[in-house]
């Protein structure tokens, strides 16, 4: 007879820590004209919210840290204050 003990066992599930996009004060806005798709923004995003192919930023989860903006060699990502 197999009985699973009740304890803190967790399974993988997106959003397990909530929708971290709500933490944001500043939102990254990409100037797609200037962007040369180097991918450095995606590489350095701690949260991996930038799609490595399309370089679309997932604003549901982006915490707005601004590393992408700071590291962009083209300086084509601006951090814009969120309006609520």
């Amino acid at each position: 007879m197999s009985r699973m003990p009740k304890m803190t066992i967790s399974v993988p599930h997106e959003a397990a820590a909530g929708l971290t996009g709500t933490w944001r004060t500043f939102r990254p806005v990409v100037d797609r004209e200037t962007c040369n798709h180097c991918g450095i923004c995606a590489m350095f995003c701690p949260d991996a919210v930038i799609d490595p192919d399309t370089l679309e930023i997932d604003l549901v989860y982006c915490k707005g840290c601004g590393i992408c903006s700071n590291e962009c060699p083209k300086k084509c990502i601006k951090m814009v204050r969120e309006e609520h």
């Binding site: 803190t8 066992i9 967790s10 399974v11 993988p12 599930h13 959003a15 397990a16 820590a17």
Partner: peptide, 8 residues
């Protein structure tokens, strides 16, 4: 890591 019963 997320909150029980889920993790990331």
């Amino acid at each position: 890591q997320g909150v029980y019963p889920y993790m990331l």
